[in-house]
């Protein structure tokens, strides 16, 4: 198979398995959601969001300059603004602007 043909096959495979993972729980638990799975569905969202926060910050260098200081300042800005105003868009835009200024101009 030529290179582009093989590439097309890989794209199809990646698409099919991504779709499979997303549909599987809906197909397996279609009739009835077991209490254990329902429990997981209730407690997983806050845990997964916590995991994704760490995931986003996974490459922060805390042992070398700038020691994660831009991330720390921007994270605090987002969290405090969100607790104060509960306006997600405002918190995100402010935090991102703060971070961009810090990494481009300060550090």
């Amino acid at each position: 198979m030529n290179r582009m043909g093989h590439s097309a096959l890989l794209v199809a495979v990646m698409s099919a398995f991504t779709i499979l993972l997303r549909f599987l729980p809906f197909l397996v638990f279609r009739k009835r959601v077991p209490p254990y799975v329902a429990y997981l569905g209730k407690v997983l969202p806050p845990a997964i969001i916590g995991m994704l926060v760490v995931y986003c910050l996974r490459n922060t260098a805390i042992l070398a300059f700038p020691f994660g200081i831009p991330e720390l300042i921007a994270v605090l800005a987002v969290v405090l603004l969100q607790i104060w105003k509960h306006r997600s868009l405002l918190s995100i835009l402010t935090g991102t602007a703060v971070y961009m200024l810090l990494v481009q101009l300060v550090f």
């Binding site: 407690v43 806050p46 997964i48 760490v54």
Partner: peptide, 30 residues
Amino acid sequence: GIEFSMTALFLTSFVEQWIKKGNRIPALTG
């Protein structure tokens, strides 16, 4: 640095989840 918008998005979700009763132990577990 604009990729921080993703982090900020998850952080705002985290704060909102944190505020709801019963979510703190799962959030801390995560």
